[in-house]
Design a protein around this nucleic acid. Structure first.
Lengths: 185, 185
DNA sequence: ATAAACTTTCAGTAATTTCTGAAACTTCAG
DNA sequence: CTGAAGTTTCAGAAATTACTGAAAGTTTAT
């Protein structure tokens, strides 16, 4: 499983970026390797290609599976586990968004809900609570919306994205189109 | 500048979450404190309230300014610098998205562009390059779209988000509405 | 020009996160 | 049941990242 120069560059870069995307260097490298390799690949091959310990590889694969980005692929007649991407690029990107939302937004929403139940003791607190409420509502909108976008499915989502600034025009016309939907806000 | 229990809880939580949001614990705490405090606050007050060194506070404020999340606020007749949020909650959220896009997507786009210029040496490389191209296109769509959403401004963005699943129905009707916009993809 | 009031920088230290590798565990063929 | 082939766990080591505090720098009033 030697890596070509092109794959090496890409793998190294995804390693560097890994930490910004919510996982660590080796996890990023492993993901890139699995995605860029057309064939299923074993944990041992990953260890060798990336020069990382077998233990670290195992941890990395476990984490990637918890993110639902890679999955096991059983090869008949083989004892070892092979790994492949858990879907196409779109699916993977969706999964990353979703997981990150869970890690980055949900815990805050939960805390904010709790804090908003308390009765403010002072004006200062009332003011802070009001701000926290704004944050809560914003995060909730983002969460709900991102779920709805995901439910659209890749094709429609792609249409929407490619629509670009046309969205603005569409919104201006929406009242005519979708009567009853304009009562929000 | 003593913090009330409510503010303390929120500040601590934003500190914990900080690292997931792209900055470190103290930077998260400082941001929360500035946002939740209705009055402008000095670097010294921040140091005292959070029990962190003056140096660390200075670094944190510098970083928050580089993210354009807080700004200085000059109080007439005062020598010290006071700090306040750089806008309302919506603005701040937008800034976070934008900065993160710059840090998380742009460098990868740039590398991918370079790698796509190389002529693949083998089938294996050609396959990998094809995948990289898919990733590049996806990231580009995301970038372009997020810019367009920002240009809509908060009100329209809010309308769009609140529209929720109505978006799906609207997309089905869009061809009738916006002829010529359906030629993409 | 001086000094008081405040801010920033940065070398060293502390805290946290990631990685290794050996031991424990699992699975399966014979 | 045994052992070979493979995987996982986890304590400690290494690497990275964040923090402190003292020294250097800046600004402004006089």
């Amino acid at each position: 499983m030697k890596m070509t120069p092109l794959i090496t560059s890409a793998v190294m870069h995804f390693g560097e970026m890994g930490s910004r995307w919510g996982f660590n260097r080796t996890v990023g490298q492993i993901l890139a390797l699995i995605v860029l390799n057309e064939e299923p690949i074993t944990a041992q091959e990953i260890s060798d290609a990336l020069n990382i310990s077998r233990g670290n590889t195992s941890m990395g694969l476990k984490e990637l599976q918890s993110w639902r980005l890679v999955k096991q692929h059983l090869v008949p007649g083989e004892r070892k586990d092979f790994f492949i991407p858990a879907g196409d690029i779109w699916t993977l990107a969706n999964r990353v968004f979703e997981e990150r939302r869970k890690r980055e937004i949900d815990p805050t929403m939960s805390l904010l809900r709790d804090l908003l139940l308390d009765t403010p003791a002072t004006d200062k607190e009332a003011n802070a609570q009001h701000k926290l409420n704004e944050i809560h509502d914003l995060l909730e909108s983002i969460t709900v919306w991102s779920e709805e976008l995901q439910n659209l499915g890749p094709e429609k989502l792609n249409t929407l994205m490619k629509l670009g600034s046309g969205v603005g025009r569409m919104l201006e016309l929406k009242d005519k189109l979708l009567p009853g939907k304009n009562s929000v806000n």
